[in-house]
Amino acid sequence: MPQTTNGAAPAGAAPAVAPILEVEGVTLQYKTKEHLITATYRVDFKVYPADRFVLLGPSGCGKSTLLKGVAGFMRPVEGEMRLKGRRIEEPGPDRVMVFQEFDQLLPWKTVRQNITFALRNGGRCSRESDADEIAMNYIRKVKLNGFENTYPHMLSGGMKQRVAIARGMAMEPDILLMDEPFASLDALTRRQMQEELLQLWDDTRFTVLFVTHSIEEALLVGNRILVLSPHPGQVKAELNTHMHSHANAGSPEFIALQTRIHNMLFADRVLEE
């Protein structure tokens, strides 16, 4: 830990470990052709090492925008985001993003080359042979051995997302940013991928910031959930969900929490009606 002086001390019974990511009072805005949209309004949260931190909210709550902000693609108009105490200014390989879209893979590179491309350009490996070795290691981790020399267009959607995850993990970033990575997959594959992600996490204990609009997925994947309200995105709640997994999905407690979050998100709408 290079910098331990983290300004203000965490309030309440916060853990003694320094957070990896701090988001403080962040307001994000972007322009469309006709409007200036406020995507999030004064959002605060902290992500600690080995967190599976989920940003949950309906569409329009600015969760993806928030992730882009952390990735460095957007500057906040208000507030600050710090990674390991350093202010986030621009995109960098210490925060790797995994997208929902399948076209995040370079179609002109094979599975292995997609990963070595990241390793070499991201400055993690200067020698191609080292990059190859790391790439193969992560290809085995996501169970794609045998496909290392295949071009992305030959792969199924689930396999493409695995390559993207392997590419992200191979970089060993401080934090892995996942923007609804399983949203384009069919239900069966999605469930399998959620389980595999949790298994990978169990092996290496990386830190991940995961965006989803599915309450169920949030409960399954995350250990802590930030619930955001829409237009603009504001923090509604921060909940612990480490006790929930595929094993107890469907149990009364699981459903109760699911209903609670659902009511939290849609309470306003019910009142309006």
Binding site: A71, P91, G92, P93, V96, D103, L106, A118, N121, G122
Partner: peptide
Amino acid sequence: AEPLRMVGRNYGLRNIR
């Protein structure tokens, strides 16, 4: 595609590279 552009910048590609 936008994701591909962001991937490029994410892995540190700038300007001519």
